[in-house]
Design a protein around this nucleic acid. Structure first.
Lengths: 351, 351
DNA sequence: GTGAAAGCGCTAACAA
DNA sequence: TTGTTAGCGCTTTCAC
């Protein structure tokens, strides 16, 4: 028995209804909707009218049952699957303003196309499996993956399961997967050039975690560029990309190199922490110590003084990530590719 | 023709396959899966075996086509639909660490239940309509709504469309919708009591936007509590809950009341900005001015000194929001309800 | 260029 | 308690 049309909620207008209103068959309406050529223009018009007057909206489930596509992508934030993973709330990730920018970029590309990402977190190994299952069984056509740890097993798992996926940054181990990234070395070079141009000669750096590519390349890129400028040795304190780790790294650096006059910090959040430590030790910025950050996140302008930093085009990269994923969904055999973005120096007051 | 079982990607194992393997009918397997009682325990076991050995996973689309449920909820971040809404990226929202906590709380409740939220942003009026359409036509069973502006029309639209929805905070205008909130007045009272206990008598406040309930109640709650303590007039500078607005509000306050010795700021992000201005004007915190924030966000510990603040149990509230939404999805006639959480004073160094 | 008809995989009456 | 059957709304051969 046919369900009574509930006027209050979700429409129950079907293709059938439109077909009847237009005096054609379901198949024809379907063709018009899906933009298949071979349909008489006049009929097309009639059908469009009928769609408009009936207020028809395709049923997602029915369509996806037959096409085996969901028209949805997953945005997966994935960790290493290690300990501490059973924290009640995965909110840590969001404390980095960086993540918000990723989401913004993704949404800006997807929304005009009527696609809304589904949000998944995968901290534990168990959750990696769960995410994989979800993906493999068509809860989404593909995945946009942002890893928070170098040992994240998910990229490899996705490749092995043939789930279309795009990473936000180059994976720690090389695997055949599409990713976008920023040219970390070029960014570090920009910072080095700027510090040198500002006449700094006793320069140090606070790096990110050295087991992730971003941490590693920003450090080596910076050291290489400084070497080119004639500075063979650059002291480094390793941080973890968090505010607090930047503060403690700065303390260490200051203890060992109290006379430093220039500093490159591998991200703004750590730079913000470093600024606190510098002030605590009576150093003026930029007079005593010139500081250059990395990311151009909201932390950069929340600092005092505002940070001179390397702009990481996160939003553009995230949008590109979405574009690439959709391409992979369209063309399953498409080969993995990488797109590397150029960073830019943003000069503010800290250097 | 039957599609060849592609061993590489999404399984094509159906109920039929399981039924055959277990030597029962599809219906029975379906019953076992959906936990319907009347099934012989022995058969249940056989079926479970068959499910395990075949590696069966239900097809979401097929199920949702018949149940008219998606098993999905939308997490909607919605603005007023005003100007400036066409910013390329909706990343602003994420700059407030508060939002990350909301997401964390929601996910913590939903994930164990195998539900992943779909993320939607609705800044413009056009997007409000789009979101509504999506929701009405079953892209999600309901919506978790976080409004960023008082004039957000979406809550009302959702109610009118009979889409199950839960708000993060009390709507500006009263409408019959379920929401969770924190007891802003109680929080403000906690702040007032603390400041008075610290011996402060020349107290001022930086409020949130006064057209949103949270901004309004924190202010009036604070003033009322101070009145009880014998302080009839509390100067106030209005801010916009952003870092920058807190800084400028502090400047104004200091210009008019240079002798103030106590301050309540309606959120931590503004308090962080206020701290900057205080330092800039040579005030020591807490010696010269005691500062109490609100939220206990990551900004509270990133500050120097760390902020004494009112803990807003955002994660718990968000989890409750998800619970309520699921209840509304289960019971469509369920009446709107509200759940108000108690805030707690967190004492750190700023007061 | 268009229509008829066969499913996609599942749930839910209804029978047995 | 279990099986049979009729769809859910859509796309897509295959005839016409």
């Amino acid at each position: 028995m046919r369900q009574a049309p509930s006027p209050s909620s979700g429409s129950s207008i079907t293709l059938e209804d439109v077909a009847r209103a237009a005096g054609v068959s379901r198949a024809t309406v379907s063709r018009v909707i899906n933009g298949i050529r071979n349909v008489d223009p006049a009929i097309q018009e009639t059908v469009r009218q009928a769609i408009a007057t009936t207020g028809y909206v395709p049923n997602h489930a029915a369509r996806s049952l037959v096409t085996r596509r969901t028209g949805t992508v997953a945005l997966v934030v994935s960790g290493a699957g290690g300990e501490g993973a059973d924290a009640p709330f995965p909110s840590q990730v969001f404390n980095d303003p960086f993540f918000g920018r990723v989401v913004g970029g993704i949404v800006s590309f997807l929304r005009p196309r009527g696609i809304h990402p589904i949000l998944m977190f995968a901290e534990t190994a168990e959750m990696h499996a769960q995410v994989l299952t979800h993906l493999r069984h068509g809860n989404a056509d593909g995945a946009l993956l942002v890893s928070t740890h170098a040992e994240d097993p998910l990229p490899r798992l996705l490749v092995e399961a043939h789930v279309p996926a795009v990473l936000f940054a180059r994976p720690a181990e090389p695997i055949p997967i599409t990713y976008v990234d920023v040219d970390h070395r070029a960014g570090a070079r920009l910072a080095a050039d700027h510090l040198v141009a500002r006449g700094r000669h006793r320069v140090a750096t606070i790096s990110g975690p050295l087991d992730v590519p971003a941490g590693q390349s920003r450090l080596t890129g910076f050291r290489d560029a400084m070497a080119v400028h004639g500075h063979p040795y650059i002291p480094c304190a390793e941080g973890g990309f968090t505010h607090h780790s930047g503060e403690t790294a700065m303390e260490r650096l200051l203890a060992e190199h109290p006379d430093l006059d220039g500093l490159f910090v591998a991200n703004d959040l750590m730079a913000q922490g470093a600024l606190l430590a510098l002030r605590h030790h009576g150093r003026r910025v930029p007079e005593d110590v010139a500081v250059v950050g990395f990311d151009d996140s909201s932390a950069a302008t929340a600092c005092r003084p505002p940070l001179t930093t390397i702009r990481h085009p996160v939003e553009d990269m995230a949008a590109e990530m979405a574009r690439l994923l959709l391409a992979h969904v369209e063309q399953p055999r498409r080969l993995p590719s990488s797109v590397i973005f150029d960073p830019v120096l943003v000069t503010r007051e800290s250097a």
